[in-house]
Nucleic acid binder design. Sequence first.
DNA 1: TTGAAAGCGATACCAC
DNA 2: GTGGTATCGCTTTCAA
Lengths: 339, 339
Amino acid sequence: MTLTPTSPSRSTYAEIATKAGVSKATVSRVLNGDERVHPDRTAAVIAAAEGLGYRPNRAARALSTGRTGLVAVVIDDEPTALSDPFWGVVLAGISRVFLANDLHSLLMVTPLGSPDGAIAHYLEGGEVDGAIFLQVHKDEVIKKVAEQGLPVVLIGRPFDEDSDIPFVDNDNRGGGLQATKYLFDRGCKQVATLTGDLEATAGQDRLAGYKQAHIEAGREVNNDLVAQANWTFESAKIMTLRLLAKNPDIDGIFAANDIMAIAAIAAIQERGRRVPDDIAVVGFDDSLLSQTHRPAITTVRQDIIGLGVAAAETMIGLLQDHEPKIDVLATEIMIRETA
Amino acid sequence: MTLTPTSPSRSTYAEIATKAGVSKATVSRVLNGDERVHPDRTAAVIAAAEGLGYRPNRAARALSTGRTGLVAVVIDDEPTALSDPFWGVVLAGISRVFLANDLHSLLMVTPLGSPDGAIAHYLEGGEVDGAIFLQVHKDEVIKKVAEQGLPVVLIGRPFDEDSDIPFVDNDNRGGGLQATKYLFDRGCKQVATLTGDLEATAGQDRLAGYKQAHIEAGREVNNDLVAQANWTFESAKIMTLRLLAKNPDIDGIFAANDIMAIAAIAAIQERGRRVPDDIAVVGFDDSLLSQTHRPAITTVRQDIIGLGVAAAETMIGLLQDHEPKIDVLATEIMIRETA
DNA sequence: TTGAAAGCGATACCAC
DNA sequence: GTGGTATCGCTTTCAA
């Protein structure tokens, strides 16, 4: 591939130096905020730079400092991944923080398959200062990259409990707790749950919250009421029908996402029962679906943009050698019509 | 902000040159595919490079060539923008093509408000080789940037008819035609439409397709059947109720997106009529909603990932000084339950 | 066909 | 405080 250069010819330190009557070194000092330069010269340099419409050359700086100002944002390229509106919002959060800090996000949508895939290779190549991983399923690659010394932040609690890679996540457990407790408070006696994929930590954590609500309420978890689904409409509908058949006295369902809540409602109505009068349903995500569906879904809201913001801030911290903090963002219950 | 460098120390041309017993210049030639180097030396250089696990330094190359290998992907930072799953998929398409061509996408989610905002400034700064704009509402910035000589590709037909900025888009007009024609073919006599926001070219084009279907079928467009909505559930529901009240003999509705199709169905059912038996409904987007909604929505499918791919390919073409092609991607009708 | 050497633009060390 | 200068890694004349 032969590419021709774009050349919006810009000014350089040399020109500023000449115009301001100082050396390149002084220009550098002023432009990097060195306090020790004489005020007069500082002013002269600034004036010259502005007069020339100076814009720094990132490549030159990167070559000189070894830092690129670029952070990779990696998302696994599964068919479903980026079509989940969730990720777009997370990206917005990341981008917003980075832009304000003179960093840039390099978006890489790619299969994270093998640890020695192109990405690992690339990330280790020093072309970026750090990497944020969305949608963590392939711990291998990430571990490999992190071990190479590249600052890494995960979005979503990693699988590996004793991984020491910093991450940010929504409080999935707290959300599950909130939803289930809300159903209890509403007077439900028999609350079932439709779990997400339990291979995902979000699925695990939401279920853990459901269980914790029982403990806090002094109730026993009845395993017959825990239906393992996998985030999809189909799985949830089947499991709900099964739940209803086996446990006719169910009066509440906590679905680990909104799509499954919708499926549950469909199943409940097919069986001739009413939502929320006979059975109350709470979803998770506060997705667009939950708002437009009739009846509108009561659901757990996550601070999605906050996830991106937190991840970006954590990355900036890492780049400044701060201790990484692990952020878990609070959820909020959105009460609508189904519970 | 003080940042410490990450330093995965890598090998350079100098080392390869020494190891292969040639000069740096020859290393450069070989690694850039210059045919004129003697096969033996070529082999030696390649062997040395592999042996050292050589990875090129993008910054150095950029400094030398004036090209960064980076393309900005800019999306307007409106609350709703990135939460539309559409964009995530487009990004995936772009990223995929770029990664395969050794280019990278710099994601910038930012308000495109004023032409002299930070972004325009940044894009003109020569930090990227080109820019792809998603969600075009603010022609000003884009025009400004393009005039500076930066290669620009738009996703979505621009407002300005005589703009000569290359773009890629779905065939919104063709999709509207397809949907309406399908309703006619199905036997509908009175087909109404719920338009999107007519400030957006997608909204305009889908409506134009609806009208064209009438022309092709030798029918008159009845303006009473054209209800101007704005993509939202609420607007569509109100407009549908109004349509039904005014035109009791409506037997088909083309909604310019799936959410509005769902709203139309809700309204129709509220009025005690059946879908599709009394009134057939076709949506647009083939969104997740259209699949999970009951009844499942018959809708127009767009090649969304194809949009991203086409945009990326067009950009690559521009960077190689090819004539830009304007891509309009075909749509396909997905027949489900509502029509 | 190959090598030497001069940049690209910014940084940072070393003198003064 | 300030200036000179080597340096980062790669590309690209220019000679040979």
